[in-house]
Design a binder for these strands. Structure first.
Lengths: 255, 255
DNA sequence: TTCCCCGGCCTGTATATACAGGCTAGCCGC
DNA sequence: GCGGCTAGCCTGTATATACAGGCCGGGGAA
C-alpha cells in the first residue's frame, strides 16, 4: 500500500487533523461526555493513516483530559469539567475557547459605586470610597457557567471602566497595568440565592461553588470578586506543580 | 536484529524507564536546568530501544514541562519554575487544636479492601489490588466537621494499618515513610448522600464541599481521599505565598 | 577574508508490523 | 439453562524504517 507519507502541503499534520476533528465534534455536540469515540482502527480507515498516528492523536487528547481510554473497552469523551486552577488566575474566556467552545459574556451591571463595609475591607479602602463594580455572566456554548461579580480598586487601575475592551480583555488590561503578584481563593459550597439561580439557570436546591478571589499587585489589592459556579457540574482543581499526569475519575462518581 | 520486544518481567515499560532515569538525573542534580539531555539516538544506544520509544519518553517529558526541545538543536532541561506549595496538606487535627478547640476522630471503618475501578485508577494500581481503606469522622468540639474516606497505597506505606497511631498520627506516619512531593485537590459542591448527611448531621438540602485529594511521593500515588465538609459553614482557602496578611469578610456575607 | 553551500546531527512526523493483555459476546458442552 | 472457553475487538507498547526540515560548522569558491 502506498499512502502519502506526508499530509498535502498546507495541511496540518495528520495526528493534529484527527485531534481537531474530534475536538470539533465535541464542540458541536456531536460527541457528548461519555460517548464512545472512534477506535484507533476506525480512525485508520477514516483518515487513511497508520494506527500509530491515530494512537498518538487519541493518547494526546487523553493527556489533555479530553478523552478517557481503557484497554479492551474503547475511548470515551471525558465528563466535562471546568478547570478552575486555584493556583493560577486564568481567564475563563481563554479556557472555554481552548476547549473549542464558544464564549459569551453578558454584562449585567457595570459602573462606579461606593464601597460598603465588606468591599472596603476586602480592597483595603476606606468605607465609602469609590470602586468599580461589574457583574458579568459567562456563557459556554450559550449555557451560563459562571457569574462574576468583580470590584476593582480605582487607585490601581483607574482606567478600568473606560478601557477599550474590544482590543484587550479586562484580564489583559489588568495584567498590564498591575501584574498580579499574589492572590487568594476561598471556596465554599452554598445554596445560591434567587438572583444567582436565575443567572445560572439553576433549580432551587442545586448546590453551588462560590469562590471569593482577591488579587494583589505588590502591596495593593487590585480586585476582589465573587465567582459562582454550578457546583456538581463543574469542579475546581488545584494541583502542585509536579502534579498528576492525567485526570482520573473522582472516587464515588459513576464513570 | 532481534531485540526484546517487551521489557523483562516486572520491569517498567521502556519509555517509562527512560523517563525515570532522566527525572532521577535531574533530581540528583546530575542534570541542571538548561543542560542538554541525551539525544534520541544516544538514548537508543544507551537503552537499546528504538528511536520511537526514546522519542516518546522525551516528548512526554516535554509535555509535562520537564524538558524543552527544538529541532536541529537538541533537548534541554527546562528552567526550574517556582515550586509554590500554595495549598498545603494540613492535618485537620492540628488546625482544630490551633484554634483552641478539641479534636476527636471517630473511626467508622478501617481495613483492607480490593480496589474497584475508581480507586485503582486513582492510586495507579491494578483493578482488585489490595488497598487500605478508612472512613473517619472528625469532630471539632464534638461537632462533626469532616468526613474523610481515605485509601492508602500499600506498596508505599505497608504498615499503615498496623502503625501505632497513639504515638504518631496517620499524617505524621505517612510524611515519614513517604514525604509528599505533589498533590492534587479537586473541589466540587454536591448534595451529600444520606450516609454523609448522617455523619455530618446535616439536613437534606444542605450543600456540601467535596474535596478529592491525591498525594504523591515521587512517582507513586500514596493516598487518595474524599473529604466532605458542611459547605456553608467551613471554607477552603488557597493562597499564593505572598498572600494576604489576615482573613477578611467574604463579600456577600453578613458580618 | 568573506560568503555560501553542504554534510551531519537533531527533532518532527508517518508508516507497517508485531506481540501483550483487558474485555465481552457468543458458542458449545454439560 | 448454566458455566466456561474462545474468537474478536480494543488499547498499550515496541520495533525498524523513512522522509522532512531546522540548525550548525567546516570547507571551498569568490
Amino acid at each position: 500500500m502506498t499512502k502519502a507519507v506526508k499530509p498535502a502541503a498546507g495541511e496540518a499534520r495528520h495526528y493534529i487533523r484527527i485531534k481537531e476533528q474530534i475536538l470539533a465534534d465535541i464542540a458541536e455536540g456531536k460527541l457528548q461526555p461519555g460517548d464512545r469515540v472512534s477506535s484507533e482502527s476506525e480512525l485508520v480507515a477514516a483518515f487513511g493513516v497508520s494506527r500509530m498516528t491515530a494512537n498518538r492523536a487519541l493518547r494526546e487528547l487523553m493527556f489533555e483530559g479530553v478523552l478517557k481510554r481503557s484497554a479492551g473497552i474503547g475511548t470515551f469523551v471525558s465528563p466535562k469539567h471546568l478547570d478552575v486552577d486555584l493556583l493560577q488566575i486564568r481567564n475563563i474566556a481563554d479556557e472555554i475557547l481552548e476547549r473549542g467552545h464558544t464564549h459569551k459574556a453578558v454584562v449585567v451591571k457595570a459602573g462606579l459605586m461606593k464601597a460598603d463595609a465588606n468591599v472596603a475591607d476586602a480592597l483595603q479602602l476606606i468605607l465609602g470610597a469609590e470602586v468599580m463594580h461589574s457583574l458579568i455572566v459567562h456563557m459556554e456554548n450559550d449555557q451560563p457557567i459562571q457569574v462574576e461579580e468583580r470590584y476593582v480598586n480605582p487607585l490601581v487601575a483607574p482606567d478600568y471602566l473606560s478601557a477599550d475592551f474590544y482590543s484587550m480583555t479586562p484580564h489583559e488590561y489588568l495584567t498590564q497595568v498591575a501584574p498580579i503578584t499574589a492572590f487568594e481563593h476561598i471556596v465554599q459550597a452554598v445554596k445560591p440565592d434567587r438572583a444567582i439561580r436565575k443567572y445560572l439557570g439553576l433549580k432551587n436546591d442545586h448546590p453551588c461553588l462560590r469562590v471569593f478571589r482577591r488579587t494583589w499587585s505588590g502591596e495593593a489589592v487590585v480586585t476582589c470578586a465573587l465567582l459562582y459556579y454550578p457546583g456538581a457540574q463543574y469542579r475546581l482543581e488545584a494541583r502542585s506543580s509536579k502534579g498528576p499526569s492525567k485526570p482520573v475519575a473522582i472516587l464515588g462518581e459513576k464513570q
